[in-house]
């Protein structure tokens, strides 16, 4: 009976879809086995943002009135910045495992296999990084809650998750593109270093635009991180209205919908630029 059923299932198995699920889950499982056996990166990845939150929060606790909008503590202002920055740096590192697979020849093992789609290699990385970012964000949000910085509403929580997903997708695509375009891991790490902190400081993660010199305000208001930080900050601030102006940029006001549209635009743009590169490298 079971045998007949199995044969039946095998014969009617929608080949391509099941094949792709099988290879994506196998590749993803590999990444998680690595993570569980080498938990130091995860532990550091969770501890680091908490330290940021504590230290920066304490550093600016007595920030002058008017630095952040009325009724908001600096800590709750900072929370959104730390969440976004953490997800961003995690996703920026997404290319490293692939780079090492290239360097050690493990990628050849994957490429010589009859994968239904070589995009499965990319999907596995995206799933892995997304899960880790969400775990990190959760840890930050819980810590922020216990520090008395509040907790977003259900719809706010959804907004946080959605914003993070878009950001992680875009940055993971960028990082994977770099992992195939650059010659080795040294170069990849160098690029990550150069991108990482400047983008943090030239965003609204640590201070609002009104507090910045005008040139930095300009940089911050074209910085992709800013467009992810503001919606998440709004989710913390209270009742959520995405049509409200969230960002007072030098070139004009940007609403919540505006921020998300910019993020989606960046994600799509990066995807369109990078997928031909991946296709060529993985063809």
């Amino acid at each position: 009976m079971t045998n007949t059923l199995n044969t039946f299932l095998a014969e009617t198995k929608p080949d391509s879809f099941a094949d792709q699920i099988q290879e994506i889950s196998a590749l993803t499982r590999r990444l998680f086995i690595q993570l569980i056996r080498r938990p130091s990166t995860l532990i550091a990845g969770i501890l680091q943002p908490l330290i940021w939150l504590l230290l920066f929060g304490a550093l600016f606790a007595k920030a002058p009135d008017g630095l952040v909008s009325a009724g908001m503590s600096y800590g709750s202002f900072l929370g959104a910045g730390v969440i976004v920055f953490t997800a961003f740096s995690g996703a920026l590192n997404a290319g490293l495992p692939i780079m090492f697979d290239r360097e050690f020849g493990f990628l050849n093992r994957l490429l010589v296999a009859p994968l239904y789609s070589r995009n499965s290699i990319v999907f596995a990385s995206v799933i892995y990084i997304t899960v880790i970012s969400l775990l990190q964000s959760l840890a930050i949000m819980i810590t922020a809650f216990f520090l008395g910085y509040g907790w977003p509403s259900i719809s706010g929580l959804l907004l946080v998750v959605m914003t993070l997903l878009i950001l992680v997708f875009a940055v993971t695509a960028l990082s994977l593109g770099l992992a195939f375009a650059l010659p080795g891991h040294i170069e990849l790490i160098a690029v990550i270093f150069v991108i990482n902190l400047p983008l943090l400081f030239a965003s609204t993660a640590l201070a609002p635009i009104s507090f910045m010199p005008s040139w930095l305000g300009w940089l911050a208001s074209i910085n992709p991180l800013t467009f992810a930080i503001e919606p998440i900050r709004a989710a913390y601030a209270g009742p959520l209205h995405l049509q409200m102006t969230l960002l007072h940029a030098p070139y004009g006001n940007v609403s919540g919908y505006g921020c998300l549209s910019v993020l989606i635009g960046i994600a799509l743009g990066l995807f369109l630029v990078i997928s031909p590169l991946l296709n060529r490298k993985l063809a």
């Binding site: 099941a18 086995i33 056996r37 493990f106 994957l110």
Partner: peptide, 25 residues
């Protein structure tokens, strides 16, 4: 079977073979 043997040193041999089996569906 390539000249340079690329194994994932974190995986066990069995896990590597399972991964390989899944990649060949």
């Amino acid at each position: 079977v390539a000249q340079e043997i690329a194994l994932d040193k974190i995986l066990t041999g069995r896990e590597l073979l399972k991964l390989q089996g899944d990649l060949y569906h």
